[in-house]
Design a protein around this nucleic acid. Structure first.
Lengths: 173, 173
DNA sequence: CTGAAGTAGTTGAGAACTCAACTCTAGCAC
DNA sequence: GTGCTAGAGTTGAGTTCTCAACTACTTCAG
């Protein structure tokens, strides 16, 4: 019969897949562990602070912030609630659209980020960039962008200047 | 002063890092969503069943299983508890070492895996391998192995035959 | 202006994970 | 043998995340 239409992974693909899953799983765990231990926050929260720090006025609407951190609205809402309890982020209502809320990095939040950054960056170096040749960095960039576009994401939207332009354009089309 | 010894990421590296984090975060979320929706299990649990299915007798010691699924012992213990409640895995004591426990795939577990596999594989294809050229698959494999070895993992240990040999050798050195 | 549909954000319940503390067993020194 | 250190696994508390339901506001058709 015409059963089993599934196109399984070829051996090369399977090996690649298993290695890729293992590498990303462990790398992510390592990043979380380092940040949690040394800075008291998981990687996802670091990203929130980092994105806010890199933006004019150090504030963004919740939905913009969710978009550039690859977070669901719900997840971001819980995250910001925690960051706010910590005193690292402040929520303020948006005057022009009263549905919206600004998330704004506080001084304490900026200080926490500055304290966390060196350890985080050196972890990223240690486990990723130090192991790769310059060509491999380029390859990884291309591969990541290819995957992103497959997920319906404009690959430039993960880079701050463009991410902002995107968000801006979305509001004033 | 000689402060700020941190070697920050260069622009190329930063772009690569942001794209990589975004891609892996979203890809992982997509895999979890697909499996949770269509098979009632997260990706991590799928991996447990998949690894067990691929092994003689469809059973492994908990610690071996933890190693090849990149899981902490605690995480695996919780996971297997859930899979056991579901009737997909059975725990049996190991006679030769009474500290150890076997996790064994049940018939129902095998059936659940068989039912889940096509959808999972086609998601992996759709969002990863379909977007990559054959060269990029090779590059991704090399990059993943480089990262794994940086994490102190033998990259071959994610491939089943070798993973078993490793575990075997560890027991009878 | 009214109401329908869409957008922004929050909330609560439950699932999954982390960390540290714990039990039980093995292997080894003496 | 006795005691000591190490290994295998579990547990519980606390944290983060997901999903679905919800509120509140905006936009736009008519």
């Amino acid at each position: 019969m015409g059963c089993d239409e599934t196109r399984w992974l070829e051996p090369r693909e399977l090996d690649t897949w298993l290695a890729f899953v293992a590498a990303t799983t462990l790398l992510d765990a390592e990043l979380d562990r380092q940040l949690q231990r040394d800075a008291g926050m998981p990687h996802a929260y670091y990203q929130v602070l980092a994105m806010l720090s890199d933006v004019p006025q150090r504030r963004l609407r919740m939905s913009e912030l969710a978009a550039i951190t690859q977070s669901s609205q719900s997840r971001l809402s819980h995250a910001v609630a925690r960051l706010e309890r910590e005193g690292w982020v402040r929520r303020t209502p948006c005057p022009s659209d009263r549905r919206s809320t600004y998330a704004e990095l506080t001084e304490a939040g900026f200080a926490a980020l500055e304290a966390a950054a060196p350890g985080h960056v050196s972890t990223v170096r240690k486990y990723l960039f130090d192991r790769l040749t310059p060509e491999q960095v380029g390859q990884l960039h291309e591969i990541s962008k290819a995957v992103l576009s497959g997920l319906g994401i404009d690959p430039d939207a993960t880079t701050m200047p463009t991410a902002l332009a995107e968000a801006e354009r979305r509001r004033h089309p």
